[in-house]
Design a protein around this nucleic acid. Sequence first.
DNA 1: CCCGGAAAGTTGTAACTGTAACAATATTCG
DNA 2: CGAATATTGTTACAGTTACAACTTTCCGGG
Lengths: 150, 150
Amino acid sequence: MRPESTFDLQSFLPYLLTQAAERSSLEFQQVYRDRYGMLRTEWRVLFHLGLYGTMTAGGIGAAAGTHKTKISRAVHRLAERRYITRNRDGADRRVEHLDLTPRGRAVFNELRGIAADYDEALSNQLSETELKVLRTALRKLAGMQSGRFT
Amino acid sequence: MRPESTFDLQSFLPYLLTQAAERSSLEFQQVYRDRYGMLRTEWRVLFHLGLYGTMTAGGIGAAAGTHKTKISRAVHRLAERRYITRNRDGADRRVEHLDLTPRGRAVFNELRGIAADYDEALSNQLSETELKVLRTALRKLAGMQSGRFT
DNA sequence: CCCGGAAAGTTGTAACTGTAACAATATTCG
DNA sequence: CGAATATTGTTACAGTTACAACTTTCCGGG
């Protein structure tokens, strides 16, 4: 029989991660929302294109672990605002290649600067080692399944 | 002028945290959704009551960092399913004291066991030190503001 | 006492998300 | 070739969330 007193909500990783994620995204989110009316998925698409160059919707979805319908809608809105262009592939006409417009790149550049500042502000709350271990652990958790457990 | 090549999405804490949080919540979420039709906020309310005993909606909201409208709706749905009772405070009639019903406690006990197993499965992917540093860092990030930075 | 303001919750509405179903291609292989 | 199947991306609809406005109750100063 399982002991009753074992479980601690404040140590439960999914809970702790969600709290930290929500909290740490808050201020930055505020910036791209208030300033550019962007949602989180739109921000992600913008950053993928800005950092990695031309990509397809599917490629971004795979890289960011985001569902294709969310990507589809984000792409639609970004194109509407002329932050990105959509170019049908010649060989496979199901595919579209996405790119930042100059306008999109300008927004990306500004947001990247703010993101870098924000990341630094967060990082300064932790020691060097803490930060290093944290990033490693998060990458492991983000990239893996625990396997069936129920 | 800021260097162009500095920013790395895979090291950006808010991004990394969100990815890890989404990923790690997914499987557990599946359990309480499929099995009990519960949403995340309902799960949180249930666990707060199960672990800490009688609480008010406002108290849970403050403890969990969750907006009162989300709590309000979660409480409504949990009461509807007879997982919790709502008792008006005698002295301050704006306040309701919430408690698990026996039925709610049974569900809580089962979910707590599953949560403990899941946490263990996740924890096993990390070393002892990693885990310790991770929890400390997450608590810091969850509980603090970076201050003005924009 | 009683009025203004604060606090605890609730509700309306518009926006966002998830699931599944869909259309338009591409590919496989008998 | 051509029917079955897979892939890329969109859309419909139902369900969830956010924000603001609201109700009810409490508190403090005149």
